[in-house]
Amino acid sequence: MPRKIALRDALREAMIEEMRRDDTVFLLGEEVAQYNGAYKVSKGMLDEFGPMRVVDTPIAELGFAGIGVGAAMNGLKPIVEFMTWNFAVLAFDQIINNAAKTLSQSAGQYSCPIVFRGPSGSAGQLAQQHSQSFESWMANTPGLKVISCTDPADAKGLLKSAIRDPDPVCFMESELLYGYEGEVPEGEYLVEIGKAAVRREGTDVTLVSYNKMMLPTMEAAELLEKEGISAEVIDLRTIRPLDRKTIIESVKKTNRCVVIDESWPFAGVSAEIAYEIQKSAFDYLDAPVIRVNSADVNLGYAASFVEEFLPNAEKIVRAVKEVSYAK
């Protein structure tokens, strides 16, 4: 029986179930224990698992991420929570130079089964330093897997898979959507890493997106339907490895594609998708692939900047009309 629960509760269920199942799994990060999480994702977990397994850290991202890496090399399965991915920047050395390379450097002797998780993307008027998306940053690095998903059921199943995965996984959530509700199945289930979901079937154009940009994308698909344009909507869910097959199959059917991606355009996830399509479905395309990204700039505080910066349904509809050569 599915129930409606919020993203934060789905993520918590994933962690709790995995921690009950495997006592090497533990959570560490800022404010995760006594404060119940800055966004209440880990609410109540300290009570159930105690301070050895739900660990409040000082503000020391590089240090505690590295402690996670070492613990992972020595048999534990850490979940490292970053209050937001903007602060994970301080820990990039441990994620990119270490977690991602442990298996390769040790020629397979040591693996690094660790999950780095937290919200990615803008969250209202938080200005330059607190509004960044990190999917393309992390997805550029071999050795890492990258998941970015806000559908509660999928996020739960994917987080469970990430915790069980033998390799490091960067897991990206959304500050604005922690309260976003969706139907989540009862009982044990996993969602496979590396598989996109077709959220809506259509015939005229493929819209590819992920994380909270799925909302304006679905909204745009509805608007387009009213105008007689049938959009197929793909939620990537996993960024690396990218589910090329689902994208290509869809584009072969619709012959047009718009990528909606909150990351900056330059060398971003959207660029990678456009590359894949031109490489594998060139002959099927009726129009160039175009993308709707956040603006190629730093995001300022004022509401007018946020409006200008982010993709929205209107901008997506405009892009679809462009690839459809429609007015």
């Binding site: 301080l90 200005a127 330093q129 607190h130 300022g300 505080y301 004022a302």
Partner: peptide
């Protein structure tokens, strides 16, 4: 637009060169 950094910074990021104020930083 009349703010100390023209609405670009908000509460966390004032800067003022004339006062040798090198800013409010949001990264701890």
């Amino acid at each position: 637009a009349t703010g100390i950094v023209k609405g670009k910074g908000g509460s966390m990021h004032f800067f003022s060169r004339e006062n040798n104020y090198y800013g409010g930083n949001g990264i701890v």
